[in-house]
């Protein structure tokens, strides 16, 4: 390949027809399979609507991307209305700078949406997680607009529901539990098409939290000490 073409590609002045997602800037998610299916990764800004059960690895799938985002900018990561407390040691271990994490626990859903909009459009937040069960179309539009204004990525985490209408957001995904990781279905993507369900394998990253290796029950040394001691 000619170096000039490479240069043009790097400047995003030239792209191939296969890269449909080039119109929308993306950032790697930290999982190759997911990046491949999303043609680059999670959107750089906008709203991602995620339907998932709690505790199946949804944060483990999404957080690595936000670690990268936090490392590349000086901005904040905001968690709004998490179902229970976030565990500080875990966030630290994932590589987050805890002093740039803001947790908001509003009284009601209305305040939660208000805070989300304020954070997104402020321009000083890079990413935002919002646990919010119901979201009307106009609310989603406002969040999407605020996220584009402030250049932030917002993830809305919702329990799986039977709501059939789709929200006007950048990306809609469905997560279900899978033994070796997590099962992802891309329902809707701006500038792309939906995909067949695929499995993101987490065996390497989270050996303890996947099914495949469960037979190799390796105890940490400290545990053995505490058992024997």
């Amino acid at each position: 390949m000619k170096p000039t073409i490479d240069g043009l590609k790097n400047k995003r002045l030239l792209w191939q027809a296969s890269q449909v997602g080039a119109a929308q800037k993306t950032l790697p998610s930290g999982f190759e399979v997911l990046d491949k299916h999303l043609q680059g990764g999670l959107p750089e800004q906008g709203v991602v609507d995620v339907s998932t059960a709690i505790g199946i690895g949804e944060l483990r799938l999404l957080l690595p991307s936000f670690v990268l985002r936090q490392q590349s900018s000086e901005r904040l990561l905001v968690f709004i209305a998490p179902p229970v407390h976030l565990n500080g040691p875990m966030l630290l271990k994932l590589g987050f700078d805890l002093s740039r994490i803001l947790i908001i626990e509003p009284q009601n859903a209305k305040d939660a949406l208000w805070s989300a909009e304020q954070c997104l459009k402020s321009g000083c937040c890079d990413g935002l997680f919002l646990w919010q069960q119901s979201l009307a179309i106009h609310q989603a539009k406002r969040l999407q607009f605020a996220a584009e204004t402030g250049g932030a990525l917002s993830i809305i985490v919702r329990q799986k529901t039977n709501e059939h209408f789709s929200l006007p957001v950048s990306l809609t995904m469905n997560f279900t539990a899978a033994p070796e990781g997590i099962n992802v279905t891309v329902t809707k993507r701006k500038g792309g098409s939906h995909s067949e369900p695929f499995v993101v394998n987490m065996v390497k990253v989270w050996p303890e939290l996947t099914h495949r290796l469960s037979t190799e029950n390796v105890l940490p040394l400290a545990t053995i000490h505490s058992l024997t001691g």
Partner: peptide
């Protein structure tokens, strides 16, 4: 400024940062 704005509306006890 964002933190002030949020705490004015939500109250002092709604904003946190995690720590270990």
């Amino acid at each position: 400024q964002l933190v002030s704005l949020l705490s004015a509306k939500l109250g002092e006890n709604a904003l946190f940062s995690p720590s270990t």
